[in-house]
């Protein structure tokens, strides 16, 4: 009897172990679209008006990182980083990528919310569901801004639109990295409650204390998660800042703060020592670094905290250094 039970136990364990891939049998190939816009208005130098200083450097460094990790990289900076070019690149990938391959889209540049664009107060109201987001967030590609204002919104991309654009790319392993203000708004509603406030510098303690109640409500009354932004079922998003806060670039490090720590992920983010960096591990490292090495040194107006998509799955980014 005992022998029989032992045999059955061993068979059961072998069955469940065989259902998982124990070894890391080589990280699959991936494609990366890397966009960075410092110069929005070519009549002015970097750092003047809407022209930023470091997004082009961010993009080049991120492209180098992904190339080193074995990705096929398309790098576009400044005048090359237009919406038209992005649509062409996506079309190219749509025809060349296979289902199982990874796709990464990285953007560094300006971002904004509808409310900023229309120069009015946020359209978010207390009656809005807590999982919702009635405001669109935007990333500004080249041609969409001039030195002191908006040139053409048609040349920028808003959150729902980005979801539609990348939907054309085959496969499920899609990762979006955005180093831009208000970029947390690109993260679609999920079955999870993100306890990192939308505006880190004005953390709403009351909302933090109701996290349990919110998770219960979310389970019982689910919103239409495919409705807006980039749903986690379509792509995992890691965003530099909350949907109501700014992200920053800094001269002493020569990069956007988020990107600077993201670039260090390969070296320092391997928390479990498995020689693989996942999006979660990278997020954890970047968020901790920003909290310890940036937020504690700057004034409250400059504090921010990255956000990441929910969902049960974490994506492998690249191998550890």
């Amino acid at each position: 009897m005992i022998k029989r039970v032992s045999e059955l136990t061993i068979v059961f364990l072998l069955l469940i172990l065989s259902s998982c891939n124990l070894g890391v049998s080589g990280i699959p190939e991936g494609f990366a679209l890397i966009y960075g816009v410092s110069i929005y208005d070519t009549n002015y130098p970097e750092g003047v008006g809407n022209n930023l200083t470091y997004p082009d450097d961010d993009a080049k460094a991120v492209a180098e990182l992904f190339e080193k990790k074995g990705y096929e990289v398309m790098l576009r900076t400044d005048e090359d980083a237009t919406k038209e070019q992005l649509l062409k690149d996506v079309y190219t990938l749509k025809t060349s990528m296979q289902m199982g391959e990874r796709f990464v889209f990285y953007f560094s540049g300006h971002g904004a919310q509808d409310s900023d664009i229309h120069n009015s107060n946020s359209t978010l109201t207390p009656t809005e569901p807590f999982w919702g987001d009635s405001d669109n967030e935007w990333i500004f590609l080249h041609g969409s801004l001039r030195v002191n204002g908006i040139e053409s919104l048609e040349k920028a991309i808003y959150d729902d639109e980005l979801a539609v654009i990348i939907a054309d790319i085959p496969g499920y392993k899609k990762i979006i990295l955005i180093d831009a203000c208000n970029s947390g708004g690109f993260i679609g509603s999920t079955f999870n409650i993100d306890a990192v406030p939308h505006n880190f510098s004005e953390a709403d303690l009351e909302s933090q204390n109701t996290t349990f109640k919110k998770t219960l409500t979310l389970f019982l009354k689910l919103p239409d998660i495919e409705d807006s932004d980039v749903p986690s079922s379509q792509a995992a998003v890691m965003a530099a800042a909350g949907e109501r806060e700014f992200s920053w670039e800094y001269g002493n490090i020569g990069h956007g703060v988020f990107t600077f720590y993201f670039l260090e992920s390969g070296k320092y983010a391997d928390i479990n020592g498995d020689e693989i960096i996942t999006l979660n591990e990278s997020y954890h490292y970047v968020a901790e670094s920003i909290e310890k090495k940036w937020n504690r040194l700057v004034g409250s107006d400059y504090r921010f905290c990255p956000h990441v998509s929910g969902g049960p799955v974490d994506f492998i980014l690249f191998s550890a250094n």
Partner: peptide, 15 residues
């Protein structure tokens, strides 16, 4: 179960 995904501040509930 009141749960938190590791390495994040994402919370969820499931029975």
């Amino acid at each position: 179960n009141f749960s938190q995904y590791s390495l994040t501040r994402l919370y969820f509930f499931y029975p």
